[in-house]
């Protein structure tokens, strides 16, 4: 870990200005990922701006705008608090389950909601500075493309990067059409639809998302929905807990009569960004909520998958996980 300046700030504007003024400065929120990466010399900021004390932690009902009646979650609130807030548990249980599927209680107590969005990939080539990695050091090549890529992407990868986004929370957020509220360097707030927040790697895998240097996530808004009684977050992993997903699925259904009025399906562990399974959603809309239809939706979604040498299993596992998550959602999301 290189020496760095530790900067305290009083308000969000001050924080944004400070980080915007120094290209090698980073916000320090929960610290659960950035310190991990700094110890490994993967990230080498020369300044950390401590935003842990900024008052951006509230969870409240959105009182106006397009997401009126939905919920707003403070960017610097802790994951634990988001997962357990009554507004979230009762109205967005999918988000609660997704947060609780991630990491450990200790990490969720530290990690912030905004920080969760900005966590880096867990690709072991990215983490090991002795290995090539275009995300860490553009131009060095992708170690995983022809390497041990069991944990890697099956959708949307490029020859420059096959890493996946590691978050569980974000899989639920993309399924729920969340919006990221950002305080810009000009002091103005901008809104980024969640689906546009993270990026596919293309030829700039060093950019995980569309946030500019200095921009601070102030809140995440989730619009009101009718999924609360039929949603489920399924996480498949190599051990029972405290492991990153092989494949995860956020599933939510709104049923009208015996037909699916609206379906939301998103996947984790399969792409450089939380993957919205739009093919599956399109197919399911207007169909009956049967296992056969779920299977067909899963087939359609996974048909587009392009697996790598060691992750071919993710195609079949992805199908099964989609079906299982939808079945569990129909069962009221109960474990």
């Amino acid at each position: 870990m290189r020496p760095f300046k530790f900067t305290k700030v009083n308000d969000a504007a001050n924080a944004v200005q400070t980080v915007a003024a120094n290209a090698n400065s980073k916000f320090l929120a929960g610290g659960t990922n950035i310190l991990d990466l700094m110890k490994e010399d993967v990230m080498r900021p020369d300044e950390l701006v401590d935003v842990t004390r900024l008052n951006l932690t509230q969870i409240k009902t959105v009182s106006g705008g397009v997401n009126k009646g939905g919920v707003s979650i403070g960017g610097l609130g802790k994951n634990t608090d988001a997962a357990n807030h009554p507004l979230i548990r009762q109205n967005f249980p999918l988000l609660t389950q997704a947060i609780l599927a991630g990491a450990s209680a200790q990490i969720r107590n530290m990690a912030t909601n905004g920080g969760n969005l900005n966590q880096r990939t867990r690709c072991s080539y990215f983490y090991d500075v002795a290995m090539p990695c275009n995300k860490r050091e553009p131009g060095t090549g992708c170690g995983a493309l022809e390497g041990i890529n069991r944990m890697h992407a099956v959708f949307g990868w490029s020859n420059d990067c096959v890493a996946v986004h590691p978050s569980d929370m974000c899989v639920a957020l993309v399924a729920l059409d969340a919006v990221v509220k950002v305080q810009g360097t000009d002091g103005a707030e901008r809104s980024i639809p969640f689906i546009d927040y993270h990026r596919l790697p293309g030829n700039t895998p060093q950019k995980d998302n569309n946030l500019n240097q200095g921009e601070l996530i102030t809140a995440i808004e989730i619009p009101k929905n009718n999924f609360s009684d039929k949603s489920y977050y399924l996480k498949v992993r190599d051990r029972a807990s405290y492991a990153f997903a092989l494949v995860s699925v956020a599933a939510a259904l709104e049923i009208n009569g015996n037909k699916i009025k609206q379906a939301r399906v998103a996947m984790g562990g399969v792409a450089h960004k939380p993957w919205r399974a739009t093919e599956a959603e399109k197919f399911l809309t207007g169909k009956e909520a049967t296992e056969a239809n779920f299977k067909q939706a899963a087939e359609m979604e996974m048909k587009q998958a392009k697996p790598l040498e060691y992750n071919k299993f993710k195609v079949e596992l992805g199908k099964r996980a989609i079906v299982r998550a939808l079945m569990q959602a129909m069962n009221g999301g109960k474990v």
Binding site: A83, R89, Q90, T96, Q97, L100, S241, G333
Partner: peptide, 14 residues
């Protein structure tokens, strides 16, 4: 009353 990933029904009041 905090929930966990294995909590049967997270919608239940804490």
């Amino acid at each position: 009353g905090e929930a966990s990933y294995v909590t049967a029904d997270v919608r239940a009041k804490a």
